[in-house]
Design a protein around this nucleic acid. Structure first.
Lengths: 258, 258
DNA sequence: GCGTGTGAAACGATTCACAGCA
DNA sequence: TGCTGTGAATCGTTTCACACGC
């Protein structure tokens, strides 16, 4: 009797989750869940700017969704707004953070420290959102022992020591496509239950494991499709500042703002 | 009269596209479009392995979707299968490639060469799918003049020269969030009509421009939500090899296969 | 009055089930 | 017989519109 395995579906919002029974709060619709981090980020921004109250219209405008959708999304969490007024930024921020698990700090292991893996190891967007990179693993003797962002790269052969020691339940996979499934199998065996997969391959994992896939090449291909569409049907609407014309430099900051 | 601007919606599958009139083939549903690159990748793999025919069942299995969905997706492109047999790999590959614009080679400019930008500049998954990085741009004097993967980093101040010279219509944004909108404005002004945005910020662009956003922190947050769910409702189903137990190393390749 | 919270309607995507053809 | 192609049914998501309460 082979254990139940599920294919981690592809596109963003491919998430394979077990979640058998409903616990205290209800399960969020996937589409809503995918937007909550965006709301949370904007709320953090607002709160840092000293804003204390936002209406659904304002917040929706800031994150690029419709006010109705924002309200519907938030309504899944309960009623945290005040009619006629809006949402208290601090309250909503706290509630959203709690719901998303931003209260805890999550230890994360990264497997594969090629170009992409190294970039991810130093990515500030992880630490700023409650994730701590606790281990780096790669099989390349050239890399083992090197440090990235203060963390030493361990041998992939020692994965079975490293993961239990750090207690990571979330793993980032940045290996070549051919290696991804084998590594994932070992990670799952070690108790990892969430995997962010950057490898261009489909992972098969047990039901209880959640996988999200990010395929950068795929993203560009989708853009290429739209590009092709645009060049196929040339003019239709009026000329919109038309193409590569006039350099005419507007805006020329010398450095990115820190 | 301000020009029409649209908010690039957030999650993967946020794509803002104008596509006013329908050209020769019909417009693909976004959900289908997002899966086509996955099918294409698998077809390339199969063709390299010498497989000449696949059924919807086999291909679906390999990419992790249902056979019905695969057939429905492909049916949007026309009838390229043979009843009772399956699909000719070469034919389907060619058709899909043509549809996705893989026939052409797309020049791409990358703006922002921090950790992530540099990793993307060297990412093999881009070149292997028909994209050529033709320009790198950053405002940091430390970086300007350096070469990544054989390409020199140009000054952001020279963007108005670089983009027209290379003819890039697709841009990858890997700048800090605060800089993203300003850079996007300049890119759009230079005729760029597709942007892959890695910055954690919402872009506002004219209708004709397609934006896709990849937010790596957001992906991890979605995993954290699921993790939290799992730890909240502890046991329910039978113990599934239970957690961090027994190292018991299965599979220990010493190196990633190249 | 104003903006939230929410049923109901509209829309889109997925799954089902089978007719049609090699 | 076996697998494609596709209408019909189902399911999920978004939008609409308005009742409710500050």
């Amino acid at each position: 009797m082979p254990p139940i395995q599920t294919r981690a579906s592809s596109t963003t919002d491919g998430s394979t989750a077990a979640s058998v029974g409903l616990s205290t709060p209800v399960d969020l619709p996937p589409a809503t869940l995918a937007r909550l981090p965006v709301y949370l980020r904007e709320l953090n921004l607002l709160s840092r700017t000293g804003v204390e109250v936002v209406s659904s219209g304002e917040l929706a405008e800031a994150v690029g969704v419709s006010p109705a959708q924002l309200r519907k999304d938030l309504s899944h969490l309960g009623s945290y707004g005040t009619r006629g007024v809006g949402y208290d930024v601090a309250v909503l921020q706290a509630q959203l953070g709690r719901e998303m698990g931003s209260a805890r700090e999550w230890p994360v292991v990264i497997v594969g420290l090629g170009n992409l893996g190294r970039a991810l190891a130093g990515y500030s967007g992880f630490s700023s959102r409650g994730f701590r990179i606790v281990a780096l693993v790669d099989p390349d003797p050239e890399l083992i022992g090197q440090r990235v962002n203060g963390i030493e790269i361990n041998d992939l052969a020692d994965l079975e020591d490293v993961v239990p020691r750090t207690g990571a339940a979330i793993a980032v996979l940045a290996t070549p496509a051919e290696a991804a499934q084998a590594v994932a199998d070992r990670l799952v065996h070690l108790g990892v239950t969430s995997i962010l997969n950057f490898a261009a391959s489909v992972l098969t994992v047990p039901e209880r494991v959640t996988v999200r896939k990010v395929d950068l090449g795929q993203e560009l291909q989708i853009l290429a499709y739209h590009e092709q569409r645009k060049s196929d049907e040339p003019v239709l609407a009026g000329p919109p500042a038309s193409g590569t014309g006039h350099p005419e430099p507007v805006l020329t900051p010398e450095r990115f703002p820190s």
